[in-house]
């Protein structure tokens, strides 16, 4: 299946209050690619992400997932293919227990109970959260919530994973675990983040958004070396690419 392709052509989107959030965004992500979408606050990252599974529909232009164009009609299909992890796990986790939370998507998809159970345990195992199955999601720690939110999407077995700020508000250890988890996936991944070091760790490609337009698109190492570009887009070199102020090394 060529479902793993994600393609956007000339996307325009304005919010009801008139704010133009996307102004002609185009790209094509291929199978297994891991893309970091970076940019300043309000650059259009979250808006772009919401287009990828049809939560928003563009004012102009189109999104394709594989061979399927995202429209109202193809929505159920698209949503099974594209899994979306939200920035605030509290928005996403609403069921009484972790197990039910992870089962929510598969049950809505109408899968058989045994199949659902199977997928739930597999998804929880993947994110190393099997021990949390009977806990209520809103009582978990930030890192655990994040893991469960990811599991609740993995259980739908999507081909493409879309994530908004997967490391926001996490302590260093939880952040590291999340990054390791993201690296272990073989899905096509689209990750919006301010954490440029995460992009270096996980992504094979960086897409820089600025004022609703693509300002740069290339390998993270190349993009992040362009200091003029980074400054113009309100970004900063990833810490590990900066000269170390303590020991004076770095590139």
């Amino acid at each position: 299946m060529s479902h793993h392709l994600v393609e956007a052509r000339d996307l325009y989107y304005a919010y009801p209050d008139g704010t133009a959030a996307l102004r002609g965004v185009s790209f094509r992500f291929t199978h297994g690619e891991s893309v970091g979408v970076v940019g300043a606050n309000g650059a259009g990252k979250s808006t772009l992400l919401l287009h990828l599974n049809g939560c928003l529909s563009p004012g102009r232009g189109a999104v394709r997932i594989g061979d399927v164009q995202v429209t109202r009609k193809t929505l159920p299909d698209v949503r099974r293919t594209v899994g979306m992890v939200f920035q605030d796990p509290d928005d996403q986790l609403f069921m009484p227990s972790v197990r039910e939370e992870v089962a929510f998507g598969p049950l809505n998809a109408g899968l058989a109970p045994e199949e659902v159970e199977d997928r739930v345990s597999k998804a929880l195992e993947t994110v190393d959260a099997s021990h949390l199955a009977d806990r209520p999601p809103f009582r978990l720690s930030g890192g655990e919530k994040r893991a469960v939110a990811i599991a609740s999407v993995l259980s739908l077995e999507p081909d493409v994973l879309v994530m908004d700020e997967p490391t926001a508000n996490l302590d260093p250890h939880a952040r590291r675990k999340t990054i390791d988890l993201l690296r272990s996936f073989h899905h096509t991944r689209v990750i919006a983040t301010h954490d440029l070091d995460l992009v270096l760790d996980v992504c094979t490609r960086a897409l820089v958004l600025h004022h609703g337009q693509v300002a740069a698109d290339g390998s993270p190492a190349d993009v992040f070396r362009d200091e003029a570009l980074l400054a113009a887009c309100h970004l900063e070199k990833p810490l590990r690419m900066q000269a170390c102020p303590v020991c004076g090394t770095g590139d």
Partner: peptide, 14 residues
Amino acid sequence: AMGCRGFNGILHPS
């Protein structure tokens, strides 16, 4: 978020 996981107005108790 619910829509993204196929919610259509009914909760399926597991």
